[in-house]
Nucleic acid binder design. Structure first.
Lengths: 225, 225
DNA sequence: TCAAAAGTGTTAACTGTACACCCATGC
DNA sequence: GCATGGGTGTACAGTTAACACTTTTGA
């Protein structure tokens, strides 16, 4: 039996939220034909790891974070997507908290940078397509699952949460209604703390309560924007 | 540069709807260690085709249908998922109309059969996991996109549509309310025809209008259950 | 006339949306 | 006092959910 074999990589679309903007991490390649051009951080799949492990490894290498939201996006397999050798890539998308940014540049790379997700330069191969698909997925998921919290620090104000939704979905929302909607879900726990260092009335800080979410989900609760 | 290479297959979860039941197509393997056991229809990825082309090929081989709803589900890459050699598989899920069933058995298979999706035998490798994931995806998608129509014949009654939703979601629905909800979307076009051969009042037959759906979608319409 | 499903009507409860408003704080 | 955001109230429109009801048809 002949079993055709294929070169396989993983590429990560790593989203972050900072300054009220949704950002994505891109790296400048330092080797091969694509030297000097921007792309998504990725690597080969090693023989004894899962795709998820490879993606986690790339994420850890570049941002220093682990145990973060990471999910398979799609396998891209156009035979011509990569010049020269055929390479199939499995793309992942990851969400990191803005307070956990500690970028580091990979061995074969020249630079790494957070850029506004709607103002990216042209990327190598089909990476723009991958990014577009990841953004569409994020926009969809954020409405149906409480994954947005992965982009915020542990404690956050309701307006920060609203700004996150506005940045991800590229819309504007009504403050009183957004606030009520969120509060009614009982997923946010008020902390004793308040915002500090602001020149206006300090807002209450909230935490997202994963345990409550799981309980509610078991009872049939469905998260919707 | 060393590039580790990997054996890659596609496996299809092919859903059909018949007798008011949601079914899935499984095949009995005729070769190798898994001879005599049931699994999902799949094949190797060939060197010059995309994963989607490979999945379409498998679908065409087994059911004789082409141009059908087919979408990537997930890549499964546990190093131990397949005994012996490491094989990574990319799973797809497909929806076929019940009036298009013309099963044929692949060269290396002994049998092919539609089984109720909630009464499947034990499947080889991680195929039960794949099926579970496909079903979850179907349940989710059917609520947010009008893909359910891919499981019905060209013309159908409102009750058939309702029964489809009930089978997929494993719930029961209120007839008057379901009917109004669907009609209000303006996606169904009434045909001149009526059901025939039934011993009760014949229901009107409807078609799903893809063109209207696309127009509405551009105007911001969102399909929900 | 009965069974089965087609199809309509009505109501009360709940949600979404828009927007007016007051509160607290630092400069 | 003013700008900025925090936070509450309200009221109308629209939607959902439950279910009672009439109609049509073949056997």
């Amino acid at each position: 039996m002949d079993t055709p074999k294929h070169a396989l990589t993983v590429d990560n679309v790593i989203f972050g939220f900072d300054d009220g903007e949704l950002k994505v991490l891109i790296v400048k390649h330092g080797e091969g034909e694509s030297r000097g051009r921007w792309g998504l951080p990725g690597d080969w799949l090693y023989p004894d790891e899962t795709l998820e492990q490879a993606a986690s490894r790339v994420l850890l290498d570049r941002t220093g974070v682990r145990d973060i939201f990471l999910e398979q996006l799609h396998a891209f397999s156009e035979p011509q997507r990569h010049p020269g050798e055929r390479i199939i890539t499995v793309a992942f998308f990851a969400l990191v908290r803005s307070d956990a940014h500690a970028l580091s540049v990979g061995k074969t790379e020249l630079d790494a940078r957070w850029v506004n997700v709607r103002e990216t330069p042209e990327l190598i191969f089909d990476h723009n397509t991958i990014l577009t698909k990841a953004l569409a997925r994020l926009k969809h998921k954020v409405r149906h699952e409480p994954i947005g919290f992965n982009l915020l620090p542990e404690k956050f104000t309701l307006l920060e949460l609203q700004r996150l939704y506005e940045a991800v979905l590229d819309i504007s929302l009504d403050k009183p209604n957004f606030r009520r909607k969120m509060m009614k879900m009982n997923l946010l726990v008020s902390t004793d703390e308040k915002q500090s260092g602001v020149s206006y009335r300090a807002a209450n800080l909230y935490r997202f309560d994963l345990r409550v979410y799981k309980e509610l989900t078991e009872q049939g609760f469905v998260f919707e924007v």
